[in-house]
Write a protein that binds this DNA or RNA. Structure first.
Length: 728
DNA sequence: TGTATTTATGTTTTT
DNA sequence: CATAAATACA
């Protein structure tokens, strides 16, 4: 770059920054920790810093910037282009970086070239097989739970072997067996799960000094955003790729650490100065986002955390309106209140893109969505992965995946009978059995069904037909994404089937069309990408990545997804005990009150102008109305900044709400016992076989005299207890 | 074999 | 409530 041009660029990059911000941009040598409070302009600073590095001490391709979401990466990359830095800088998430490096260095990592990334559903299938293979039952070993344990282990850098060595009791030793079988299943299918991406790269770097050197020469300067949410594997990767240059810039905020449940270790950021004794630390504590009142409310809340580095956010922004705490009777009223207020805002000329609703649980969006539809308010939900979980989309992608990686049995067994071509469970079981017996990969058995003695002639013919279809589709994976998907949809017969279905249900066909558009859009953004590349891209997509800007729509998302975003008008709903802070049971061992508080803090600090917090007296949870008390967090807010609002009761149209006193446990619940007698209007007398006490979820299993047996949700069941002396 | 219906069962949050 | 698995039926 010409010196004159360069000076002009660096001047521009330092313009309009406060002194600490400019310091974070200018400090190019050695480790740097930027402790940036919420709304302190962190994104702006790191983007400028990346550009500044590229303009002064190094070249764009020597800079690696790691963000938390793909969306953040794309936005940063775009801004860099606008600043004249070009597209050569590496800006991506940890997971994308790992996928890329493992792909390039698959040989050194001991991975097959064609490995694919398994999503949670695929993982679940492999895990179920692993549980069966270990001779265990899924009743006792819930796949969901084991999946969680294995994921946690991988995040802590524990391989199956290491986990087994550390197993302290019988239960852990059993999980170790399942873990080992699961790894075997994944390896056989050439699959990596999300956690593997991090784990495998960390292990590769740990044992390969040459590769470390190579990467360090390539990336002389590394930036990692949201450092407070890195886990052990990410931490190790970060250390490995920066140990020599030590040009690591970590940015983050301990008060916004909200991924502890996923293995994120807040200590990674807290010990940065120990890891790098020569580290320079910059604190950004001036908030440019929120009004004084919003900031004050959020600050008061977070100060209730005990394990916390002291930090005081301040702002020169106006005082603003008070933070509202809205009380309503139930979720319908809450939704009605928000929908109508937003509709009014829109009618008065407001832009819906200014408005966001945050909640702790995805399931809470439904009531809000219904109210918004009724009020005619357009909205988008940050749930990108949901699209890719639809049956018809998975069907199409199963083909793409099996073509990319023939060893992928999850996709192979899905594609083999979609659309239905008479290859059912029995046939598949026989193919699998043959593969197991001979040790041949399943795809090879499918390609040569005539060798499977157990198969009937007709079945052999059908399987051979499918194998032929696959072979004819094979070239598509190295072609263009859009054309590949189009060909695939048409040649497999999926298109024809969906077209036929369209009269009854047009959605699947539309979704497939949307998938083709998505492939098309990717193609435009990445002119030389193949179907294979697109597949990898889709498997790394997250929920927030689907959020579009300037759509003129209101945005709904979880509090977790909201991190890093900002909106002029924010609603945080369901601030109730057990919802936010969220807690499944009294004795929930994973409960972390401080993390829940940080989550609430993150939500509140997204708001620029107006912040509304709401709570309801009743809320339906899993189909049962539950009495709720207001969240303790509401009582931790400063009285002076709060305005209490009665959201009105019964304002919503609750037409089909059950009028009877359903969902109440019988008053004499403590006298119900096993072997006790009960009466039911239909089945009459019965004896209680077992009782599972679980609050509103309490279930009883009754064996009736008539021979009928049934489990009841006690709150709903029309059962009455019968004393012995009432019986004839 | 494939589809429709019933029934059991379970849970945050995400790359 | 919502989904997945199990079962009944065409």
């Amino acid at each position: 770059m010409e010196p004159v041009l360069r000076d002009r660029l660096t001047d521009a990059l330092l313009a309009n920054l406060t002194e600490p911000q400019a310091e974070a941009v200018r400090c190019t040598d050695g480790p740097l920790l930027v402790l940036a409070g919420a709304g302190a302009g962190k994104t702006r600073v790191i983007t400028r810093r990346a550009a500044y590095l590229a303009a002064t001490v190094t070249r764009p391709w020597n800079v690696l910037a790691i963000t938390f979401t793909n969306k953040a990466a794309n936005e940063m990359a775009e801004r860099l282009v606008a600043m004249g830095v070009g597209r050569e800088m590496t800006v991506c998430t940890f997971h994308a970086l790992c996928a890329r490096l493992l792909r390039i260095h698959h040989g050194r990592a001991g991975l097959p070239r064609d490995f694919t990334i398994f999503d949670v559903a695929d993982q679940r299938k492999v895990l179920k097989e692993a549980i069966a293979a270990a001779g265990l039952s899924t009743d006792q070993w819930s796949p969901a739970r084991v999946q969680g344990v294995i994921s946690q282990a991988k995040n802590q850098m524990l391989t199956a072997r290491a986990y087994e060595e550390g197993a302290a009791d019988w239960s852990q030793r059993t999980v170790a067996r399942i873990y080992a079988a699961y790894e075997e299943g994944l390896a056989r299918q050439h699959g990596l799960d999300f956690d593997d991406l991090l784990l495998k790269l960390a292990l590769l770097l740990r044992g390969d000094a040459e590769l470390r050197g190579e990467i360090e020469r390539r990336y002389t300067h590394v930036l990692i955003d949201e450092y407070q949410d890195t886990n052990a594997a990410q931490y190790e990767i970060a250390r490995h790729i920066t140990s020599k240059n030590a040009n690591l810039c970590a940015t983050g905020d301990p008060d916004q650490s909200i991924y502890g449940w996923r293995g994120a270790d807040i200590r990674n950021i807290l010990r940065f100065e120990e890891d790098f004794p020569q580290a320079h630390v910059v604190r950004l504590e001036q908030n440019y986002r929120s009004t004084k009142r919003i900031l004050s409310a959020a600050s008061h809340l977070i100060e209730h955390n005990v394990e916390r580095k002291d930090k005081t956010l301040w702002t020169e922004n106006p005082e603003g309106a008070r933070v509202r705490v809205v009380s309503v009777e139930d979720a319908e009223d809450e939704a009605h209140f928000i929908a109508h207020e937003v509709a009014r805002y829109r009618a008065e000329g407001g832009n819906l893109a200014d408005v966001a609703v945050f909640y702790r649980l995805n399931s809470l969006s439904r009531t809000i969505e219904e109210a918004l539809i009724r009020a005619g308010v357009p909205y988008q939900v940050a749930r990108g992965t949901e699209f890719y979980n639809r049956k018809e989309i998975k069907d199409v992608l199963a083909y793409a995946r099996v073509l990319t990686n023939p060893f992928d049995e999850v996709s192979l067994t899905r594609a083999i009978n979609t659309p239905a071509r008479g290859i059912g469970k029995t046939t598949i079981d026989r193919l699998v059995a043959h593969a197991q017996a001979t040790g041949a990969p399943l795809h090879a058995v499918v390609a040569a069904p005539e060798q499977v003695a157990a198969l009937q002639a007709a079945a052999k013919r059908r399987v051979a037909g499918f194998a032929q279809l696959l072979a004819s589709l094979a070239p598509l994976v190295d072609g263009r994404p859009r054309e590949g998907i189009e060909q695939l949809v048409s040649l497999t017969g999926i298109q024809a089937e969906l077209a036929q279905l369209s009269a009854h249900d047009p959605e699947p066909a539309q979704n497939v069309e949307e998938l083709i558009s998505a492939a098309s859009a990717f193609e435009e953004a990445h002119p030389d990408a193949t179907l294979r590349d697109w597949l990898e891209y889709t498997s790394l997509l997250g929920d927030v990545d689907a959020v579009e800007e300037d759509t003129g729509k209101l945005t709904l998302m979880t509090l977790h997804a909201a991190k890093g975003l900002e909106f002029p008008r924010v609603y945080v709903i369901a601030l109730e005990d057990g919802m936010l802070p969220f807690c499944r049971q009294e004795y929930d061992p994973t409960y972390d009150e401080e993390e829940e508080r940080r989550l609430c803090f993150v939500g509140m600090t997204r708001a620029k102008q107006f912040l509304t917090l709401s709570h309801a007296d009743y809320r339906m949870v899993r189909g049962v109305a539950e009495r709720k008390t207001r969240s303790q967090f509401l009582d931790e807010l400063p009285r002076g900044e709060i305005e209490r609002v009665d959201g009105g009761t019964g304002s919503a149209d609750k037409g089909r709400r059950a009028p009877r006193n359903r969902s109440a446990l019988p008053a004499d619940i403590e006298r119900w016992q096993v072997h006790g007698l009960v009466r039911h209007p239909e089945y009459d007398l019965g004896r209680i076989v077992w009782i599972r006490l679980a609050g509103a979820q309490t279930r009883v299993h009754v064996a009736f005299q008539c021979g009928h047996e049934q489990t009841f949700l006690l709150a709903y069941a029309d059962l009455t207890r019968v004393e012995f002396d009432e019986v004839d």
